[in-house]
Design a protein around this nucleic acid. Structure first.
Lengths: 252, 252
DNA sequence: CTTGATAATACTGTATCCATAATTATGAAT
DNA sequence: ATTCATAATTATGGATACAGTATTATCAAG
């Protein structure tokens, strides 16, 4: 029992899994322009995540601490702290005395994770349907419209981004901080696979059709229907991912 | 793309959230007897969790880094790394430049978390019912029997421990590593509340009755029934917790 | 030529040190 | 007497230095 500097003025709980990002030059050293209010290790963690998602650090790769520290223009200390965070999130694996490796996601992992995501996102949709206000729905409609145009133009990358926004907004609308947290943790892991499913044949159109059902349920504020639609949407996503895995070049 | 020391020999993924513990003297310095294969920061993290669950570090408390480091007989570096991990788990809150505080769980948080736990543990029971083998069931029966005797003797602490084992084993039997991970993350947060619900009136007996239903479903390998029973069990737990919160002395 | 042991190298893990920012205490002015 | 401003103290955040262990390369023996 101690509270020397000051008992926290009733701040309920911390947001683990921040998303700080700054516009540092990718290869340059950090100039003294760091007035940042956000902890360095969190910025580094986010930057590492981006590198991992972009497969600059590919699954199975060894993470060279001093090389990265030199590259980022920082010392090893905040980098190591960031790696601890990513390890807790499951993005990297820390082997004692052997270093840090980017996590590899197996087919089994996907089979395990997708049903969970379906549950969590289904629940999000359920809660969102009950709580969302007209202005929330409007924001969803806006993203939905963007998705539509991206799908029509076959803009896979933009579609992917907007799709993330769509799902994330629904999770936020659920108003359940913990639900959001869990879903995002799993999504981070899924992003390791690069989700090539979206590039498959008519997956974009199929996804849009599924989104339509979700939107319809939300508009009617039918929680059970929204939950079912979202769950089906996720499970369909797993199926689409099932076929092409392994043999799919980046196609940049 | 780099893999200098050695490409990880196909180890799929790391277990975030280790549970390493050694028998160090609580206040003594760590002698050179550390041949430990487990990283120090993980040991420290586990020790901090125990302190938090035991309310030696109570919700809202400030965590004094150097005092703790001195107490543990280590430097601040591994302690800080451990705190980053706990922050990611949601057990503590790191405020930039202001220090580290033990997370406080609100009533709202409980309302958010319990339905999630009900979902996750329900799913665990569902998967466990389909996958469990006779020997697995035997282990469950053993724990179940212990619970029965503890309940009869009103041994709350022992009951609590065995109850954790019961739930955890079912989650393990689900064979879904990610499901286990999510459920345990949430359970850690719930443990912050000390779960006084078990001490209330006939809650132990009620919990046993609910466990009976779960066991019956598992014996018959009825996945849907097991899921429903587990879900109801968790939600009943929330109700039991609803009344007495706030006014419940430790009663050591 | 292959296989084993030994030495060298390099990286991880921990400790110590320094700078910066926040909090607190003290003093002065209203 | 109360309040605001300023200075001192203290803790956090980051960098650097050091120790220990794993890996790799070299060399010798079979």
């Amino acid at each position: 029992m101690n509270a020397r500097p000051q008992p926290p003025n009733s701040t309920p709980v911390g947001d683990a899994g921040n998303s700080a990002r700054n516009g540092d030059a990718p290869g340059g050293v950090a100039p003294p322009a760091r007035i940042a209010q956000t902890a360095l290790y969190l910025e580094v963690a986010e930057r590492l995540r981006q590198s991992i998602f972009a497969h600059e650090l590919a699954p199975g790769d060894w993470v060279d601490e001093q090389a990265l520290a030199a590259d980022y223009g920082i010392s090893r200390t905040p980098l190591r702290e960031a790696l601890k965070v990513l390890a807790t999130e499951g993005l990297v694996t820390l082997k004692p005395r052997r270093g840090c490796y980017v996590t590899e996601v197996s087919e089994q992992d996907l089979d395990d994770i997708f049903p969970l995501m379906a549950m969590l996102e289904g629940r999000s949709a359920w809660e969102a349907a009950r709580k969302c206000q007209p202005e929330d729905l409007a924001r969803l409609e806006e993203i939905h419209a963007r998705l539509e145009s991206y799908a029509a133009a076959n803009q896979v990358d933009l579609f992917f981004e907007a799709n993330q926004d769509f799902h994330r907004l629904i999770q936020e609308l659920s108003g359940n901080r913990w639900l959001l947290q869990l879903a995002q943790d799993l999504r981070k892991v899924l992003k390791l696979t690069r989700m090539y499913s979206l590039t498959v044949d008519g997956r974009l159109q199929q996804a849009m059709a599924e989104h339509q059902v979700i939107m319809a349920a939300l508009r009617q504020r039918d929680a059970d229907a929204a939950e079912a639609a979202m769950r089906d949407h996720l499970l369909a996503g797993r199926k689409a991912l099932a076929r092409p895995l392994g043999a799919r070049p980046p196609a940049a």
